[in-house]
Design a protein around this nucleic acid. Sequence first.
DNA 1: GTTGAAATTAGTACGAA
DNA 2: TTCGTACTAATTTCAAC
Lengths: 232, 232
Amino acid sequence: MTEMSSNSGSGGGATGRIGIGLELDATHLKILEVLRENGRISVSALAERVGISRANAYTRFEALRADGVIKRFTAEIDHQRAGLGIVALIFVTVRQQMWRQFRAQLAQMPEVEYCAITTGQHDAMIQVRMADVAEVHAMVTERLANIPAVKATETVFILDEVLRRPYVLPGDRERDRGRGASRRPAPSVSPEPEQGQAQGQGQGQGQGQGLPLGKMRFVGAAEGRAALRDAT
Amino acid sequence: MTEMSSNSGSGGGATGRIGIGLELDATHLKILEVLRENGRISVSALAERVGISRANAYTRFEALRADGVIKRFTAEIDHQRAGLGIVALIFVTVRQQMWRQFRAQLAQMPEVEYCAITTGQHDAMIQVRMADVAEVHAMVTERLANIPAVKATETVFILDEVLRRPYVLPGDRERDRGRGASRRPAPSVSPEPEQGQAQGQGQGQGQGQGLPLGKMRFVGAAEGRAALRDAT
DNA sequence: GTTGAAATTAGTACGAA
DNA sequence: TTCGTACTAATTTCAAC
């Protein structure tokens, strides 16, 4: 079912905080970089590309896997070719204190590719992939509408997927052509506890103040999004 | 830079339409299913799990790869552990006839994980992953704001990623617990040309009519989103 | 499309630097 | 820790069926 809770467990209690585990050095990141581009590379070839010994590569590879930094390996497929060429985003308003139910229902929907709880006007964003537009319609009106936890939805279709990267790594930033890149120090790789704190507090509201340009908007969480924490 | 244009080339001219290529049968889909869960499985083990001979598995595997159905293999990593625990969605309004420039600038931003052109109030959605909230702020105000093609942005933070599947396959639908699943015939695997047509016409607007419930909204493209096609 | 055997490569377990 | 090597197990390739 591929459930995640990467960002949860930060604001509430001490639930499930495992500790920092592995400290990632430059070599680890280099390994991840290679694996992001070619997940099927042999460990020998990986060792060569990273510039370490075969044995070392095996050790680090296993460590990354065991520690959960690498969650899994997967194939990236062409959805068009596989018969699911329509992508839609469904923004969902969830009824208060029905988060748990909402999440449970979501797990029952295999056509959902991605779901995230967001700040802003809506509570969650769902990405679905279907064979045609009518299927999206059916999914929203028949399946989502029948979930009591769903108060309202807003559906938007994706006309074109401009780019999708397997994932972003720290260090990607350094490789861009130097135009106005932020001059703040590079983020430490091992995450500080403050990071998690920041999320749980409905961050984002105050960010818009004092902007030089009026065209930017940062929108925080609606009403009682704090109830989110109880739902996991 | 991992650029995609899966949905493009449908409405406009005959540009880059390659043809159907490979016809995917049930075995192909089964292979994709396994590869989605374990991208590093050996072809031998794959053959066993799918129930075909090794030689057959090799042939099909190669065909899927050569035909582009499988675009690449990648590792799924824990962003929190890698030091990029903050995820944000930036909804962008793009200035008319500056799409090409917008796309070009996007390719220069390695911190962008996903970008899609959408119908609805905004023109595009960008997903970024950063070390902290301030970095998102800096990215939006310093980098995005400096792009002339960007008329306005709206940023929303992701509080929790509930689920992320590597990708959805036709057939996933059949496996769910039978609650109100649409009774329409299963989509044929080889995509019909009508699919592409549907997208190019700014679909979605009419979909909301005649809904039994008032809480669903389908929102089509704003003003002149048709200009999208010229931008590729 | 399948099976079986050879060649290659991958994964493991050491000791040494 | 990391490296290098030798050993074992597995995978890929190629053949004939």
